[in-house]
Design a protein around this nucleic acid. Structure first.
Lengths: 213, 213
DNA sequence: GCAGAACTTGCGTAGTACGCAATTTTCTGC
DNA sequence: GCAGAAAATTGCGTACTACGCAAGTTCTGC
């Protein structure tokens, strides 16, 4: 007697899947077009047409083309959180943080993002300053989630200062490393290594002692 | 024979002063109006009128009302840099950084900003999410400048990774502290103290040893 | 003073965000 | 399966905005 009313396992509704797919399609098309023709030359209706929806629908999903392009990186933020929470509790927080971040750069593909998405996204954001503000927004949102995950791990109350600071430092270090790396021509050091180095730097010691002020 | 052509001391031109004044007026009026009526209710022409310039002129100075509201905080970023560079070279970088940041919160007024500007700005940004992205943008710009100042102090080559990371950490810690503080109702701990604690946390140890990886 | 630079302004245009209501698509209980 | 409910898509209309351009105005250096 398969009663579905009492069991409230979060059924994946087909609608939701399609919605996610459309959102992702729009985001990828936006990146693609902006990459090809330049950000400012791309028009919202053009993106919509590439996916086969109406312009109005595009705006149901995203408030701007910039938001669309940047949206997939919020998936990475979510992935960072799961990376962190899935590590064994015994591992020191500093190590877990480094591993969680580095893990973001080692994996082949991510949550349905096509191969090479990260590279193209990074290149575009570096080239188009108008995207940077938008990117910072989703990064900030990710930071909050990360702070929550850190607090959960250390048992600190949510919203407590230290978790926030650590999250901000880790996120900032990651961002700095990516920018550093993107600014080099013919990169001498692989991105993963730069990220690892930066995050290690941020996390070392700071994370392991309470405020001894 | 007072020749002005060879001496290129940066004369302050009256026009430039007026320009700066207009820009500041616009920024303050924008904050004022957004505070009073809500950000979305404020129209660009309204801000222009409050200052006595045409709407078109507003857009010569700022690309959006959000940018206008947020602009003064870039002055604070510049002040942070001078705070840092004006400290004696012998002082350890960590201490200098903490002092430079804390100094931003102790001073009564800043670069012509009226008293209480910081409080109102902070309140508005917390209340209006649309401003946060814009704020992050200028914060990021300040971060770059800060990284430069740090590199100058340590003698590291500009653009080197460690300076960037330290700058990102300091800026991130400050931001986290401000947000933390703003989120409390009836703040138990003064803002300056939260900032000092956060930045100290970020800067401790990390700053004083090179990568010993 | 005067020539030219710099700033302001009005106008025109292209583009965007979003409310609303109609329509189509998908889901749900039976 | 099917009927009704729920949700998503779409078209239309509107208000606002960003910015190029050219004309007018004010300042600056000499």
């Amino acid at each position: 007697m398969p009663s579905t009313t009492t069991l409230d396992a979060p059924r994946i509704r087909r609608r939701d899947l399609q919605k996610d797919q459309t959102r992702l399609d729009l985001a990828l098309a936006a990146l693609e077009l902006a990459d090809a023709h330049g950000l400012t030359a791309v028009r919202v209706p053009q993106i919509a047409e590439a996916v086969g929806v109406s312009p109005r629908t595009f705006n149901n999903y995203f408030g701007s083309k910039e938001a669309a392009i940047v949206w997939p990186s919020s998936l990475r933020g979510a992935r960072l959180v799961t990376n962190l929470t899935s590590r064994r509790q015994a591992e020191p927080l500093a190590d877990a943080l480094v591993a969680a971040v580095v893990g973001l750069y080692g994996e082949a593909d991510m949550d349905g993002l096509p191969n090479g998405w990260l590279r193209r996204f990074r290149a575009l954001v570096t080239r188009e300053p108008a995207l940077q503000g938008e990117y910072l927004k989703v990064a900030a949102a990710g930071e909050i989630a990360l702070a929550g995950a850190i607090a959960a791990r250390t048992g600190a109350p949510v919203g407590e200062l230290e978790s926030q600071v650590v999250a901000a430092m880790v996120a900032g270090a990651e961002r700095a490393a990516v920018l550093y790396w993107a600014r080099q021509k013919r990169p001498r050091v692989p991105l993963v290594d730069a990220v690892r180095q930066a995050v290690s730097m941020a996390v070392r010691v700071t994370v392991n002692n309470d405020s001894t002020d």
